[in-house]
Design a protein around this nucleic acid. Sequence first.
DNA 1: GCGCGGAATGTAAACGTTTCCATATGGCTT
DNA 2: AAGCCATATGGAAACGTTTACATTCCGCGC
Lengths: 369, 369
Amino acid sequence: MAITIRDVAREAEVSVATVSRALNGRENVAAAVRAHVQEVATRLRYVPHSAARSLITRRTQTIGALLPDMHGEFFSELIRGIDRAARGQGYHLLLSSSHGDAGETAAALQAMLGRVDGLLIMSPHADPGFIERHLPEDLPAILLNPVHGHTRLSALAVDNRAGAYAMTRHLLHCGHREIAFIGGPRGNLDAEERLQGCLEALRELLPQSTPQLVAGDFSEESGYRAGSLIARQSPRPQAIFAANDSMAIGCLFALTEAGLRVPDDIALAGFDDIPTARFTQPPLTTVRVRIADLGGRALDQLVADIANGGVAQTHSVQMLAPELVLRASCGMHSHAAAAPTRNPDTVSKKRAQAGPATQGKPQPAPRHR
Amino acid sequence: MAITIRDVAREAEVSVATVSRALNGRENVAAAVRAHVQEVATRLRYVPHSAARSLITRRTQTIGALLPDMHGEFFSELIRGIDRAARGQGYHLLLSSSHGDAGETAAALQAMLGRVDGLLIMSPHADPGFIERHLPEDLPAILLNPVHGHTRLSALAVDNRAGAYAMTRHLLHCGHREIAFIGGPRGNLDAEERLQGCLEALRELLPQSTPQLVAGDFSEESGYRAGSLIARQSPRPQAIFAANDSMAIGCLFALTEAGLRVPDDIALAGFDDIPTARFTQPPLTTVRVRIADLGGRALDQLVADIANGGVAQTHSVQMLAPELVLRASCGMHSHAAAAPTRNPDTVSKKRAQAGPATQGKPQPAPRHR
DNA sequence: GCGCGGAATGTAAACGTTTCCATATGGCTT
DNA sequence: AAGCCATATGGAAACGTTTACATTCCGCGC
């Protein structure tokens, strides 16, 4: 690190200005000189001091990702998507996850302030007030899964409503009439939207029916409890739609334990398509969310906003349509679910796939080395 | 961002030096002045320009993580561990994952060079030659899961051998005599070490036996193929030890499909304890690797090295002991496996736990929000 | 009463870039 | 042949901070 542009200039017998121009690919430098400078630079293993550079250019070539404390596949997929896009755009990724409360989140945001050209924010605490208080006006930022209606910031979100709508529609098309919905933590917007989508489809296709609502909190435990509850009922609903896969899996355990066969005695569907969903008995019908896409698109948009000189002109809210993944647990995997009328071409369909070796399913790459 | 230390100085009617001292908590500044400066700084929403700061201090307060292209829980756990430790140490985390070949990895490393105070490296390409060529002498770095014997760099790794040794020992104690081992991709060191551990235990406890080696590549597909192969054999081995959980799960599918009951007809064990392992039928006995710990400890060590003035004095190799997770698939979950004699107290044991609602198992936090 | 030491504060240099502006070197037009 | 313009290069300012060094101020011992 000791070697600077001055050393290169001296060695190449030109001025620092010329070195800078040559290395940054500016036009007005003779081809021979440029080649020579480059040769010297690589020979000396010169690497520009990025702090000095960003001091003057006011650019860090870094974007920050502010994420909540998350576990599992969702998190890693999101980062994968963001990281890949960042690399593609020539940006670095400064990551800050693992903050529990609003204070920590604010501190993390604060700490990033001078170091990034833009921010990707995914946080339960990122309501308009928080943003107002902690985010500088002139720092481009994009929200992931916005909690509330933000006016200032663009946002990308999973279209939970459309996904749940399509899934409910599918369950109804399968012939199930009484549907139980296992909800998520109260106040959780994802869960809320999924419920809304479910209700909407029911209202539309089966106006006279009232779905049974069972409490849950996104944990497998709560799904198990919900499943036990439902298993004891008589009459039972014909289908259960859980607001996420973890609960669906817990529920499946409870149903199986109670001697019920899925889908023959009761149908079951989840939301998220976590990897485990493929391996339950029976494999779980669910709604797939393309998380990596979400992250990648958010980053691309952010970089575009940055290029457009700071703050975005249009604060758009982009909805990413999830797709139905039909497996055995809904009792009708080959059925082609109708796309939601509200959003006709955003929800695609996917053929069922069960066993691991039956055909080319998306196979995670070996993770060791 | 427009507001600098000069603005604060002017507003507070002191010099920039005093502002700097006051804000950085240096001793020699009057208490009243310090308070006043701090008040002004927060009022003006002053945030120091980190590039300017690191230009002069030669510190970025950032560490870089160079990771391979990975999926799933392993990846997210690793990052969680690193991130949490970094936050604790007051460091930022610059992340760069997703590089396929050695060239990309080199480029990613190159791009980080000016921007980090230290590097966490986990890459299949990070052999001594690569390090020699691309890593500056004076940049502290730590290797995760080292591929080869590195002299220059410290390293942290999972003790694959001890884990496999303990698991094999456990299988033998369960009374299984003929054991089949499903291997990983050739050249993969994790897989290699796991096989070694298995062989070692066999050699020690059952010198006359020769384990059956079945090829695999860490994918579920390959596990499925291995399972089909073994299911057709006669006589069959009494237990199968797969080099990772994915293969064990694929294998389990094949065995079930072939009408074999696990563990009654044949026992099965994996390695990694991926989340899915809890939910297979029967739940999978496996070896748990504390990934987040691995990341966190690596970061802590790196920061310590940095504090100790650049390059570490001692290039240590720290082995993280995995623990046995005994579930139903090995046929004897309540059996207390003997710890490996070679490394007596590093491999702990864990009571079996099967269903999702039976007791307090490690429950992933709700991942939405 | 005077100098002296120490604490508090100010001044300015330095970090390594980029870039504005000036200058030199040609070739071309007149 | 003289001037002019375009092009290539160099000199130096600027970015915002930290910190070595200088300065001021004040109390205290002589």
